[in-house]
């Protein structure tokens, strides 16, 4: 990368100046009686603490470059992503599946694509260097998680509506694969729409965050967009693999070896 020395360091007084905008928001809230001033201040304080902690963790990880600690951070990120997938479901699977299905799909797709990028495109030394592995995984996880959450939610929330159609097909002797196919297709499609939209809008409607960040830190724009395109491809790949895995595993769980529809495996909403 050809980073020039135009990077402008922020100091804390400058941040404090920007925080005046928040005070302005709180003032507006009081003036307009929105009753949001407390929420604003708490959310802002939370953000500062959370990012501060993440900064400390990342700084430590980057200094130590330990495979064990990096793996631990990766695990924590995946477990949080899995929890987020579960949290976004209107109807959950019963038992361990509620958490396990989303988490294992995130784990599978996220690590597969991150390892692919580390092994072929980025090739840091050592390959597990957290300065590359963690931001890459983070960007891939965030999007994969959203896709999986949307896909699974479509599957489980629409299966009740589609029940008569699926059961009639099964009763006529269709396999579970073909009886579930229309619903599985809708669910996968819904899960993939956000990433297609993100790619279509990139650069026109929105300037992607990673590229913007690189430009602000002095990287040549043509270099920054190369990185951004790589990331988009990785995200699209991770989302595709994750959504297809999760939705197919979900459809399998909602049926059994005797090709029955098993709505009893979904918790009551």
């Amino acid at each position: 990368m050809t980073a020039t020395s135009t990077y402008i360091t922020l100091d804390y007084t400058e941040l404090a100046l920007a925080a005046l905008l928040l005070v302005l928001n709180a003032g507006l809230s009081i003036w307009l009686r929105l009753a949001m001033e407390r929420q604003f201040l708490i959310a802002a304080a939370r953000m500062c603490v959370q990012l501060g902690l993440v900064g400390l963790v990342l700084k430590t990880l980057f200094e130590l470059v330990s495979p064990g600690l990096t793996a631990l951070a990766v695990l924590v990120m995946i477990l949080f992503a899995g929890r987020e997938v579960m949290g976004r479901q209107e109807r959950r699977f019963r038992g361990w599946w509620a958490y396990g299905l989303g988490t294992s799909s995130v784990l599978f797709a996220g690590t597969l694509v991150t390892l692919f990028a580390l092994a072929t495109q980025i090739q840091p030394d050592p390959w597990y260097h957290p300065r590359y592995a963690i931001p890459l995984l983070g960007m891939i996880l965030g999007n994969t998680m959203t896709g999986i959450a949307v896909g699974l939610n479509t599957l489980t929330s629409q299966i009740k509506r589609e029940r008569p159609a699926i059961e009639t097909m099964l009763a006529l002797g269709e396999t579970r694969g073909s009886a579930f196919r229309p619903l599985v297709r809708t669910a996968v499609r819904n899960g993939l729409i956000p990433i297609v939209n993100a790619m279509s809008a990139a650069g026109v409607v929105s300037l992607p965050g990673m590229m913007t960040g690189q430009i602000l830190s002095g990287v040549d724009p043509m270099e920054a967009i190369k990185y951004q395109i790589l990331i988009m491809f990785l995200i699209a790949g991770g989302t595709g693999i994750g959504v297809v895995t999760a939705v197919h595993a979900g459809a399998r769980r909602l049926s059994d070896a005797r090709h029955r529809l098993r709505l009893d495996r979904l918790a009551d909403s």
Binding site: E162, A165, T168, M169, L170, A171, L172, E174, T175, R258
Partner: peptide, 20 residues
Amino acid sequence: MPAPAWRRQVTYLPAEPGWW
């Protein structure tokens, strides 16, 4: 036999059939 083979010979029609 696989369940679909059974149901092709012993076929159930629900009171409110579904459409796909």
